[in-house]
């Protein structure tokens, strides 16, 4: 569904992505792991068209996305930080996004799901951080998009919300979607992801399932496996 071909991106002299090639298919939950500065966010932002790569190409359903915008109708995005225009109400915000996407939205179900019914007419500046994260998720999940991209989705979420998020992800996966997320929480990776892409200094250091990674390192613990992976590299 998404093909990345020899992607390179640098900011000034700082080479962030070095020649990345990847193929991502439907019906899978893929986690992108790696230490800070390894290029995780840059990679997903390239797919979203927020970052313009210098070399290489990204194809969505076989077509290059560079300079295009229509393909994003098929992508839902959950950004890491949820900051919204302060003076809009939740309702107005949802209407804005619906207006832009011109797609059918399943917002009523999700509003109940997150328990936001009473907050709909509140201005966004008056909401707590947790509520804002819920609104953030609501925006990402209310459209039936074949691809869902999440950047550190668990940051700032309470345990209940994390459980809800997992439920949502499982539900969407069953609809034969491609779900792509970055995170630092290994338990979440272990629990839900089918595939791990481990980035280190702008290169794909490992790509495979959780089991494969564990086998490779001979350890039963993902966290340890990752640590091993990084230490080996350093040796």
């Amino acid at each position: 569904m998404i093909e990345i071909l020899n992607l390179q991106k640098s900011y000034g002299k700082n080479l962030i992505l070095k020649d990345i090639s990847l193929s991502l298919e439907r019906g899978r939950i893929i986690s992108i792991l790696g230490p800070n500065g390894s290029g995780k966010t840059t990679l997903i932002k390239s797919i979203l068209g927020l970052v313009v790569p210098q070399i290489g190409d990204i194809r969505f359903d076989g077509e290059s996305i560079l300079g295009k915008w229509e393909y994003r109708k098929k992508i839902a995005y959950l950004p890491q930080i949820a900051r919204f225009p302060e003076n809009l109400k939740i309702k107005e915000l949802l209407n804005l996004i619906k207006d832009i996407r011109e797609q059918n939205a399943d917002d009523n179900y999700l509003i109940q799901f997150f328990g936001l019914e009473k907050e709909m007419n509140k201005a966004l500046r008056n909401l707590s951080g947790g509520t804002r994260q819920k609104v953030n998720m609501l925006i990402a999940f209310m459209f039936d998009s074949p691809v869902i991209i999440l950047d550190e989705p668990t940051v700032g979420l309470d345990p209940v919300a994390i459980t809800r998020l997992k439920e949502l992800l499982e539900r969407e996966k069953d609809k034969d979607k491609l779900i792509l997320f970055t995170t630092h929480i290994m338990s979440l990776v272990e629990e839900i992801s089918d595939e791990i892409i481990f980035l280190l200094e702008g290169e794909i250091y490992f790509k495979g399932s959780v089991e494969e990674l564990n086998q490779l390192n001979g350890s039963g613990n993902l966290e340890k496996a990752i640590t091993n992976l990084m230490e080996k590299r350093n040796v």
């Binding site: 068209g49 927020l50 915008w69 995005y77 950004p79 900051r83 225009p85 832009i100 996407r101």
Partner: peptide, 17 residues
Amino acid sequence: YNSREFAELLLAQPIKR
């Protein structure tokens, strides 16, 4: 600057820059 993050969210939507 304040609407920077929201701009990011909107730019990830199907809309021309």
